[in-house]
């Protein structure tokens, strides 16, 4: 559903891009901001149709980029950015670790034991190929890798 919504925006986006091509390149030429993303394709462009002349645009008409992604996700009932805490109802074991969903090959986890806030927060990395254990309570965490193997890892 969400995918189709994003897809549906593509033709309009491409048209908008084509029509503003000259102004976009002018914008780039004078831009002082440096893209620090290294390698990989740029994220797909998301455009709305824009406001009609003489009106105030709404978010759905005008929002672009991540803002639009979040907005389209909300319309579909999808939380694009997952900010819910990890499962703290149990201590993870090697046989049954606490899973850390991730689009990247590595995530930083802050453990406070089980139940939550049982001990001071301890931060450590959880990598795709190796489980990690909290040195305070011994809870084991493993990465639940959901991204693509060679996707862009950098912001």
């Amino acid at each position: 559903m969400f995918k189709t919504a994003v897809r549906a925006a593509r033709p309009a986006a491409l048209a908008a891009r084509a029509s503003t091509k000259s102004s976009t390149s002018a914008l780039r030429a004078f831009s002082t901001s440096v893209r620090v993303s290294s390698g990989g394709p740029p994220p797909p462009q998301l455009y709305g149709e824009g406001a009609k002349a003489g009106t105030v645009p709404t978010d759905i008409e005008q929002a672009t980029g991540l803002e639009r992604l979040q907005l389209l996700g909300e319309l579909e009932g999808i939380k694009v950015f997952d900010d819910s805490p990890l499962d703290a109802s149990r201590i993870g074991t090697k046989a049954s670790p606490v899973l850390v969903p991730s689009y990247d090959v590595e995530r930083i986890v802050g453990c406070t034991g089980s139940p939550a806030d049982s001990h001071d927060v301890l931060w450590f990395n959880v990598r795709k190929d190796k489980q990690s254990r909290c040195t305070e309570c011994g809870s084991v965490y493993a990465l639940d890798f959901q991204g693509e193997e060679h996707a862009v890892h950098h912001h």
Binding site: F2, P41, P44, I78, F81, Q146, H155
Partner: peptide, 17 residues
């Protein structure tokens, strides 16, 4: 859905240039 959003950054915050 995963295939669409992994092309974007995975967090909502803006790391400025």
């Amino acid at each position: 859905m995963n295939k669409t959003i992994f092309k974007f950054q995975h967090f909502p915050f803006h790391l400025v240039d």
